[in-house]
């Protein structure tokens, strides 16, 4: 068995192709993280690809390529994905199992850890080998504090957050992929994935790869200076800005909750847009908040937004309390109209 120079681990990296056969960026980042862990030892990085050849990553230095291939494994279904991961872990006898935190792996790997007698840590944001042991960083209490942890128990499974490392880059090639046979009895086929429900392309407001997060808060629907609310105008300004800037749209909880309470709402907003404690924690280099108070349960969702600016009428709002780099005390209706003119 090949051992890492620094790390005495057998590392298995689990990746899966997208529906179109390409590899998600997060898979290449996870490969980057795995390779960085054990430069010389990248020979002990094992790898699995399902339903596609190993060509994309053939030159990554892995000692062995394992694959579970078959039409039944194309769909992101718990039972078949868990069976595939279990078989790959057992075949590889891995002590450390890494995987990008895609929705697909996140659905199954905790259950797989249970099955193989392992332990799992998810949402890992940094990995390092320190004095021969593997250390992981992850956040607790919805991004309020972070911990560095290590474990004695093996196998240790870790799902890695996007951005954990630069994506691995290398020439395509051809890899010898060993096929790992996995039986799928009827009990594992009780679920069928029938497709994906997505908003029409021109109404898709969540753009994970955008440079800018644009957050709209409940203020957009509140009575304004003239004593009236201007929801239609708010909708126009927000959509106009999204169109021109290609930003991703986030929301406060109060704004998306209004729909459930039967109040005037912005029709293109849903809980999927919600950022914060009970919403998403998106990753974008910049974030602009408008008509949102910047309360702590919202702002914890901004943990991975580097540069932050806010427009709010209230000079004492949460953003002023060290949560944004710049707070413009101004009317967002007026400011965004001018911004849209300039974009």
């Amino acid at each position: 068995m090949d051992q890492g120079v620094n790390l005495m681990e057998r590392i298995l990296l689990l990746i899966h192709p997208e529906a179109d056969g390409s590899l998600p960026k997060s898979a290449l980042e996870a490969l980057g993280a795995a390779a960085a862990l054990s430069k010389e030892a990248s020979r002990s990085v094992w790898l699995s690809e399902r339903a596609t050849g190993g060509g994309f990553v053939a030159t990554c230095g892995a000692q062995r390529f394992l694959g579970v291939v078959g039409e039944q494994f194309a769909q992101a279904r718990y039972a078949s994905d868990a069976a595939a991961a279990e078989a790959l872990i057992k075949t590889s006898q891995a002590t450390v199992v890494l995987a990008p935190a895609t929705s697909r792996w996140s659905r199954v790997l905790a259950g797989v850890a249970q099955r193989v007698g392992g332990r799992i840590d998810t949402h890992v944001t940094a990995l390092e080998a320190e004095e021969g042991r593997l250390c992981a960083t992850r956040w607790y209490y919805r991004q309020r504090m972070f911990a560095r942890i290590t474990r004695g128990h093996r196998p240790w499974m870790l799902t890695l957050e996007p951005g954990i490392a630069p994506p691995w880059q290398g020439a395509a090639g051809s890899a010898q992929v060993e096929n790992v046979a996995v039986a799928l009895p009827d009990a594992m086929r009780r679920t069928t994935v029938s497709g994906v429900q997505a908003p029409a392309a021109d109404q898709q407001t969540i753009r994970p790869d955008a440079d800018l997060l644009f957050v709209a808060g409940a203020g957009w629907t509140k009575n304004q200076k003239d004593g009236k609310s201007h929801v239609d105008e708010a909708a126009k300004l927000i959509l106009g800005f999204l169109r021109a800037s290609k930003a991703s749209l986030g929301s406060s909880k109060s704004l998306v909750d209004l729909a459930g309470e039967g109040q005037a709402v912005l029709p293109f907003m849903s809980h999927l847009n919600q950022v914060g404690q009970t919403g998403a924690t998106p990753r974008h280099p910049k974030g602009l908040s408008t008509c949102c108070h910047g309360e702590e349960p919202h702002v914890v969702g901004w943990r991975f937004i580097s540069e932050r600016r806010a427009v709010n009428l209230d000079p004492n709002c949460g953003w002023a309390q060290g949560k944004a780099d710049v707070l413009y005390v101004a009317d967002a209706f007026e400011v965004m109209a001018k911004v849209n003119e300039r974009l």
Partner: peptide, 8 residues
């Protein structure tokens, strides 16, 4: 990912 839902 990306504000979508998988249907099963």
């Amino acid at each position: 990912e990306g504000g979508q839902h998988q249907v099963s």
